[in-house]
Simulated scan of single mutants.
Amino acid sequence: MDKIRLGKTDLIVNKNGFGALPIQRADKEDSEKIIKKAYENGINFYDTARFYTDSEEKLGNALKDVRENVFIASKTGMETVEEFWKDLETTLKELQTDYLDLYQFHNISFCPKPDDGSGLYEAMMEAKEEGKINHIGITSHKYTIASEAIESGCYETLQYPFSYLTGEKELELVKRCEELDIGFIAMKAMGGGLIKNSKAAYSFMMNFDNVLPIWGIQKESELDEFLSYQENTPEMTDELKQAIELDKKELGNDFCRGCGYCMPCPEEIEINTCVRMSLWIRRFPTEPCLTEEYQKKMEKTQECTECMQCIDKCPYELNIPELLKENYKDYMNVLTGKTKIV
C-alpha cells in the first residue's frame, strides 16, 4: 500500500484518496457501506465539501467511530466572513467532529490572502487558532488562481484538476508544489468521468510522489477497482501508454470536465451534461443517453440565447454555446441513425 506525505501538513496518507462528491447520488445505506469498506482497506483521506449536498452527513455517519484514524478534508465556497463561519459550523455538525484535518477555499473567484480586504484568510487563521481546523488549503479550476495561491505562501495544499489528459501547465504546478513542499491533491483524476481506463489513470498517478489523487466513488465496484491496484500496482506498459495517447487524441484539451461552475443557466439548460453528450455517446455507448429524458435535455439546448454567462463562469474558458450546437447536431445524427456508434 503506497503512502505519501501531503506536503508541509506532514499528513501521511494512503495514495488512494476518497473523493466524496459522487456519494451524494447514492442512498445512505450504500454510501456508508462503501465508505466503511474504504476505511477497512486502508484508505484514510476523505475529501468532501459543504456544496456536495448530503456528502458530509454520509461521511460523518460512516466514520464517526473511527474519527481519530482518518483525515477529513472539506471546503467552503463562501466569500464573506459571516457565511464562512456558518459553513464551517454546519460542516463540523454534519461530519460529527470537532475539527477538520484540512479546510479549503472552494473554487472561489479570487485567492484569499492576508489584508486583502475580504477578511476570509483571517477567518481561516482564526478557525485554525481555535482548533477547528488543522491545515489550510485551496481548490481551483483556474491556473492563474492556483499559481497565485501556491506562490503566496499562505496555503499548505492545492487541489487542482490533474489526470493524464492534462498538459504542461498542470505538470508545472505539480513540480512547483513539490519544490515549495505544498501538498498537491488531484481532482478530476478520471477526467471528470470521461476516462474509462482506471488502470491507466492509476498508473499515471504513481509517477508523482507528491500527488494525492482523490477518486470519485459512487459504486462499490468503482471502489473495488482502486483497492485492487493497492495490492497489484499496475505498471505503465506500452499497452497503457497507447490507451492514454488514444484518449488524448480523442478528447484533446477542449472538452468539458463536468465541474458545473457554468451553472445555473438562465434558460435552464443542463450545460455540464449536454455540452459533452457527443463524448458520452461514443465513450459509454451502453449508458442510457438516447432515452426520452436525455432527448428532452438536448432539445433544451436549442433555447440557448448565447448570453455568454456560461463562458464568463467556465474555468476552462470553453466556447460553451458553440459546443452545445456541435453536441446537439452530433446527438441528433446518432438518434436518427445518420451516425452509427460502436
Results as ranks from 00 to 15, higher is better:
173 L>C: 07
261 Y>Q: 11
245 E>N: 12
269 I>P: 10
171 L>M: 13
14 N>C: 15
51 F>I: 14
60 G>H: 02
176 R>V: 04
151 E>Y: 14
320 I>V: 12
139 T>E: 08
123 A>P: 09
279 L>V: 00
115 D>K: 13
276 R>K: 15
47 D>K: 00
27 D>L: 11
254 D>K: 09
127 A>H: 09
129 E>G: 03
84 F>Q: 04
162 F>Y: 13
270 E>V: 14
195 I>T: 04
111 C>M: 12
323 L>V: 11
242 Q>I: 04
275 V>M: 14
230 Q>V: 03
292 E>V: 05
281 I>D: 02
64 K>A: 10
265 C>L: 02
78 M>H: 06
136 I>N: 10
196 K>Q: 12
161 P>H: 05
246 L>K: 13
327 N>A: 05
59 L>G: 08
103 Y>E: 04
99 Y>A: 06
8 K>P: 09
4 I>M: 14
323 L>R: 14
176 R>K: 15
154 C>Q: 02
292 E>S: 11
239 E>C: 02
177 C>I: 05
232 N>I: 00
51 F>V: 15
255 F>K: 04
8 K>G: 09
213 P>F: 02
306 E>G: 10
159 Q>W: 03
14 N>L: 06
226 F>W: 06
202 Y>K: 03
110 F>L: 01
261 Y>A: 03
109 S>K: 11
327 N>M: 10
28 K>H: 11
148 E>W: 02
102 L>R: 01
282 R>S: 09
286 T>Q: 09
76 T>G: 10
81 V>K: 11
35 I>F: 01
127 A>V: 08
194 L>G: 10
328 Y>P: 04
4 I>V: 11
138 I>D: 09
57 E>A: 06
166 T>G: 02
167 G>A: 12
253 N>R: 03
157 T>A: 06
89 E>V: 07
295 Q>L: 10
1 M>F: 00
249 K>V: 01
208 F>V: 09
12 I>N: 07
298 M>C: 07
213 P>A: 01
274 C>Q: 13
57 E>V: 13
214 I>L: 06
293 E>N: 13
60 G>L: 04
33 K>H: 07
26 A>Y: 08
61 N>K: 11
191 G>C: 05
318 L>I: 14
235 E>A: 12
217 I>W: 06
208 F>Q: 03
206 M>F: 00
